[in-house]
Computed example of a mutant assay.
Amino acid sequence: MSSKHLIEYEHASPEVRAVFEDIMATRRVDQVNNFWKALARHPETLRRTWESLKEVMAPDGALDPLTKELLYIAVSVTNNCGYCVASHTAAARKAGMTEAMLGELMAVIGMANETNRLAVGYRVPVDAAFEE
């Protein structure tokens, strides 16, 4: 998708501007990133996605913000979403992730994906000890 498909703040409808303003206020930034500008093409999706993300990624949950960002990176790497990897790696760095942590995270992601494929390929039955 080219940048011509992104909705900039100055061209946004009042509904989209309201979501953009909430994103900027919540994240303490002066502009929204391209993901939100792309979703602004469908205001209902923009609003729903932002509200869900804001709730799931809230800092007051059982998981701390860095852990949430690390999980987001892991899923994004596995799903091959370069945009999400970049975005959430930047957010994880802001939340305290070090280069050593990123390296170890990538090792875990690679290992989990490898062993997951092996378990699926061999159709390994789940051990009774792992059942609840």
Rank of each mutant, 00 (worst) to 15 (best):
M1L: 15
S2W: 04
H5R: 03
H5N: 11
L6F: 11
E8A: 15
Y9L: 06
A12R: 07
P14I: 04
P14E: 14
P14R: 05
E15W: 05
V16C: 04
R17D: 06
R17W: 06
F20Y: 15
E21S: 08
D22Y: 00
I23L: 09
I23G: 04
M24N: 12
M24G: 02
T26G: 13
R27M: 12
R28Q: 13
R28P: 11
V29Y: 03
D30W: 13
D30I: 12
V32I: 05
N33A: 07
N33M: 14
N33F: 10
N34E: 07
F35V: 02
W36L: 09
K37Y: 12
A38M: 07
A38K: 11
A38I: 06
R41D: 15
H42Y: 14
E44Y: 11
E44L: 02
T45W: 04
T45K: 05
L46I: 10
L46K: 08
R47V: 04
R47I: 06
R47C: 09
R48Q: 09
W50F: 11
E51W: 00
S52L: 12
L53D: 11
L53A: 14
E55G: 10
E55D: 02
M57F: 03
A58S: 15
D60W: 05
D60K: 15
D60M: 03
D60N: 12
A62E: 15
L63K: 01
D64A: 07
P65N: 06
P65T: 06
T67E: 01
K68H: 00
L70I: 00
L71H: 00
L71F: 04
A74G: 08
V75E: 02
V77M: 09
N79V: 06
N79R: 07
N79T: 13
N79A: 09
C81G: 12
G82K: 01
Y83L: 00
C84E: 10
S87Y: 00
H88E: 06
T89R: 02
R93G: 03
K94D: 01
K94E: 11
K94G: 04
K94R: 14
A95Y: 04
G96H: 02
G96V: 05
T98S: 05
E99F: 03
A100R: 11
M101T: 02
L102P: 01
L102G: 02
L102Q: 14
G103L: 09
G103V: 02
G103I: 03
E104K: 10
E104Q: 10
E104L: 02
L105Y: 09
L105W: 02
M106T: 14
V108F: 09
V108R: 06
V108D: 00
I109W: 04
G110V: 08
M111F: 10
A112P: 02
A112H: 13
N113H: 10
E114G: 14
T115H: 07
N116A: 08
N116T: 12
R117K: 14
L118C: 09
A119R: 07
V120G: 08
V120M: 07
G121W: 08
Y122L: 12
R123C: 03
R123M: 08
P125D: 05
D127K: 15
D127I: 01
A128Q: 15
A128R: 14
F130Q: 14
E131T: 13
E131F: 05
E132D: 06
